[in-house]
Design a protein around this nucleic acid. Structure first.
Length: 348
DNA sequence: AATCCGTGGCG
DNA sequence: TCGCCAAGGAT
């Protein structure tokens, strides 16, 4: 039974797999890079970033030797920026501790920064042929439906159950193809909404399809709570330069650049904003106030207003972390999408 | 264990 | 408009 399961999906995979650049290599560096990029990210979104990184950093030494801001800038727009910081740190680890060669086992790969259970299994199987199963969102969905497993996948302990089920399914002979096949099936056929069961190689034995309960599986109880935040950006200008600030830890966009920020939990009207600014800074000249920009994140809904201003008599910055940059310099800084959107709308 | 971290697409 | 989801990991 388990043999036919893995045989069926591997055979299906051979005939239906997409031609993706990281599938035409056994270079651990390229496989690792692709897996970091693809964490919580669709192939269609990550593909151009993979191409950019490979072109700029053909091997792990090139990446390790790059400045961190340059790596962050190349990652700009992809989100979850801790991945980029860990990517860089990991490249340095591999160069300094392992002479530029990636570890070749699941347990050793797990020690690398930014490499968790999924990514370690992916690299171990794809690059080194180790028979360790990947358990990602696709695998949760395919197995939950096929075996009608109703455990809550939002609970960390459920991972162990799916990992053990997978260990019984993964063939020692073709672990890489099995892992790829499970994810490809989940990504292209066994989709979250309205799965394409007519094209599924394992539809016959699938309990969810037999009982027509595909939409109820996998079970995920945790709901996302959205927090609203209101951002009022103060944009100091001095001749052709603009003051920007690198964002610190424990919040969104760590390591990226934005402007001086006044944040509130409730929306302010125009007069509130102006009086708030005038309380903080005497001697201020407001040049322009933008419309509100809506910016949706996974767990947050942001509303941002951009306020361009000058000091009437003195352009010294009160905040040591604020630095004036020219337009050319700003283009090279890594910035959140929200800031990028504002800057591009402003330059017209 | 529960929460946080982006951006984009879909129904 | 809104909730959900995507080749997860760190804390």
């Amino acid at each position: 039974m388990t043999e036919s399961f893995s045989n069926l999906i591997i055979n299906w995979y051979q005939n239906h797999k997409r031609d993706l650049p990281w599938r035409n290599t056994s270079d651990p560096y390229k496989i690792w890079l692709s897996e970091i990029i693809l964490q919580q990210t669709r192939v269609i979104q990550g593909l151009p970033y993979y191409e950019k990184f490979i072109a700029k950093y053909p091997n792990v030494f090139d990446l390790a030797n790059a400045p961190e801001d340059e790596v962050m800038r190349l990652w700009q727009g992809l989100g979850y920026y801790s991945r980029a910081r860990n990517l860089h740190a990991c490249a340095k680890m591999v160069v300094e501790q392992f002479d530029g060669k990636f570890p070749n086992t699941y347990s050793e790969l797990l020690k690398l920064k930014g490499v968790g259970k999924y990514t370690a299994a992916a690299i171990a199987s794809f690059a080194f042929g180790e028979a360790t199963p990947v358990v990602d969102g696709n695998v949760f969905r395919v197995l939950a439906r096929y075996f009608n497993i109703t455990d809550d996948i939002a609970q960390p302990k459920t991972f162990k159950k799916f990992f053990e089920v997978s260990e019984d399914l993964i063939p020692e002979k073709h672990p890489a193809d099995y892992n790829q096949a499970m994810m490809e099936l989940g990504a292209t056929v066994c989709s979250p909404k309205s799965p394409n069961c007519s094209e599924c190689p394992i539809a016959e034995g699938c309990e969810a399809r037999i009982n027509n309960i595909q939409a109820e599986l996998p079970v995920k109880k945790k709901k996302i709570k959205v927090k609203r935040r209101y951002l009022y950006y103060l944009i100091w200008q001095n001749e052709n330069k603009i003051a920007m600030k690198k964002r610190g830890p424990q919040d969104i966009w760590q390591g990226l650049f934005d402007f001086e920020l006044i944040e509130t939990e409730k929306a302010l009207d125009m007069n509130d904003i102006i009086s708030k600014i005038q309380n903080l800074h005497q001697d201020v000249q407001i040049i322009e106030i933008s419309d509100a920009y809506q910016h949706i994140l996974s767990h947050q809904k942001l509303e941002a207003v951009f306020i361009e201003l000058n000091k009437k008599t003195d352009n010294t910055l009160h905040d040591n972390d604020l630095v004036y940059y020219t337009q050319d310099e700003i283009e090279e800084l890594p910035k959140p999408r929200l800031i990028e959107n504002y800057l591009s709308s402003r330059n017209i």
